[in-house]
């Protein structure tokens, strides 16, 4: 089984590699430090499984997962986070991710989750599965998160740009980073602010932190 590991911290990638390669027949075929690198390497190497941190600079794990699932529907994705979030479980599933574990539980869950994904079976802990079932059985009982409702108004490109702006990039830097014109970047920025009902960059940063798009 060929596995791509993506995390911005070298020491975490090192630890994930140690845990994964303790299984014979499992190989870490590449490592990525950002979501954008993960997408690029996944498209090049077509790994069986991508093990990915959710908070990474430039492009976060959730957006990277959406892109990878789109171009490589056979590649399975596991998302790692520091904190459990009910909201995130639903979003992760919507992005096409079929396994979600906490970094703190990696020793217990990582190998089991990757093994399940290798057989194209999902892996969710009891708590995450409860969340998903609850939302499925009683879709109206689960109060919609206002941020999530608003976020659904954004296009995938706009979500990418939210992260870059929250990381402090100017419209020009966003344009360079995405290979678009400054004018287009500015239009995106204006649309984002309107759709999210935000009025300043500091409000945008707060929104991004609250929604785990960037780390506090």
């Amino acid at each position: 089984m060929r596995i791509l590991v993506a995390d911005d911290h070298d020491i975490i990638r090192r630890g994930l590699k140690e845990l994964l390669t303790s299984r014979s027949g499992w190989e870490v075929c590449a490592e990525a430090k950002t979501g954008r690198e993960a997408v690029m390497l996944a498209e090049q190497l077509r790994p069986d499984v991508v093990v990915m941190d959710i908070s990474m600079p430039d492009l976060n794990g959730l957006e990277a997962a959406r892109k990878i699932r789109k171009s490589l529907p056979k590649t399975e994705i596991l998302i790692l986070t520091l904190h459990f979030s009910d909201q995130l479980v639903r979003e992760i599933v919507e992005a096409g991710v079929r396994a979600y574990i906490m970094k703190s539980d990696a020793d217990r869950d990582l190998v089991a989750a990757v093994e399940a994904l290798g057989n194209h079976r999902p892996f969710f802990t009891a708590r995450a599965a409860d969340m998903l079932l609850d939302g499925f059985v009683r879709p109206h009982a689960v109060a919609p998160d206002p941020d999530a409702v608003i976020r659904n108004r954004l296009t995938s490109r706009e979500r990418e740009i939210v992260q870059l702006l929250a990381e402090g990039k100017s419209s020009k830097e966003v344009a360079v980073s995405l290979g678009i014109s400054v004018k287009t970047a500015e239009t995106h920025r204006a649309n984002i602010m309107r759709k999210l009902e935000l009025h300043s960059v500091s409000e945008l940063v707060r929104y991004a932190v609250r929604n785990q798009i960037i780390e506090a």
Partner: peptide
């Protein structure tokens, strides 16, 4: 408390 960090070290 994170095994992944202990393995990294």
């Amino acid at each position: 408390d994170h095994a992944v960090i202990r393995r990294g070290v």
